[in-house]
Simulated scan of single mutants.
Amino acid sequence: MNWVAAEVHFTSDNPEQTEDLVSNIFYEFGLQGVVVTEACVTGYFPLDERIDNQRHKLESALLKLKQEIKFDYQVDYSETTEEDWAESWKAFFKPERIGRRLVVKPTWELYESRPADVIIEIDPGMAFGTGTHPTTAMCLETIESYLKPGDSFLDLGTGSGILMIAAARLGAKRLVGIDKDPVAAEIAEKNMKRNDIPEEIYQVKTGNLTREIDERFDLIAANILTEVVLTLLDNLNEVVAENGTIILSGITESKRHMVHKKMAEKGILEVETRLRDSWAAIVGIIQS
């Protein structure tokens, strides 16, 4: 498949905030590859019949953002193959320590581990989830904090499968990941095998994030868009075990109050909220 790279070059008095907000525009498109370099955010759109409409929506969203915060930008488009994208993107993905013990490393990088390290090897392909983005990093940290050995784990919007691999490495005995994107589900499956996760303890599905689930889980993670999180909260009671824990990430800091309000309406007790680089991750317990 060929892709269109949309490079948003910008100047801003607050470059970190601008990076996050422009990145969020791309994530709201459901894009599976976003690269952030100095004063530039690049998103990758599939080159298909939707591309003209996608470009129009991107430019409209950037114009709206410019009205909300002070920054200047220019968008450059170029066509690239998936192979070229993958090779160029590898330069930006290096081993990274997350939390107390977790280390996320790409398959092509060497890493000298410490005795207590929990290594997660990832080849993300075109799927979102390397551990470098604050939303993924906060999810990994909270999984490390809240998952108990023997727990069952559900990953809603699994992307590269990184959260499932972390949960398995930390002692989960039953894992299910689901993504609406079949490409992401295929990549997640490959990454599970690459990390030698036993096939009998996990399942990767494609489809609606909760309608395809017919069992209950001790720990549920959803690292997706704020609006999707709000919709999921209507159905999480049906898939979480008694006194189970939920981790909600991918939430922009400016919209976290909407998630807190919806959680309260659904009887979900907020345990913790973590903030990083304009993003929020919220941990809650379903009250029995």
Rank of each mutant, 00 (worst) to 15 (best):
I286D: 03
F217K: 07
E272D: 09
S145C: 10
F128R: 06
E200H: 08
D84Y: 06
I165W: 01
I187N: 03
V8L: 05
P106D: 06
E83Q: 15
W89E: 09
A137E: 05
T42L: 05
L269Q: 14
L248S: 09
V239P: 00
E112H: 11
V36P: 00
K70L: 10
Q54S: 15
N191I: 04
D151R: 03
T80G: 01
G150D: 13
G267R: 06
W89I: 03
L47P: 04
R276Y: 07
R114W: 07
S288V: 05
V229T: 13
M258D: 08
Q17L: 15
E112S: 14
M126G: 11
G161D: 04
V8S: 02
I197D: 06
W85C: 02
I69D: 09
M1Q: 09
E59R: 03
T158C: 15
P46D: 02
V204E: 02
F153V: 00
L31C: 12
D277A: 13
A222L: 10
T11H: 05
Y111I: 08
K261S: 08
I282C: 09
V204Y: 02
S12A: 10
G171E: 11
A116S: 14
D196M: 13
D20V: 12
P15Y: 05
I51A: 08
K173W: 02
Y73W: 11
S88Y: 02
H257C: 10
E83F: 09
P149N: 11
N208K: 13
I69T: 07
N53S: 12
L175Y: 02
T252N: 12
K173H: 03
V229Q: 14
I122G: 00
E59V: 03
S12Q: 05
Y111W: 12
Q203D: 08
L225P: 00
H260Y: 07
G33L: 14
H133M: 08
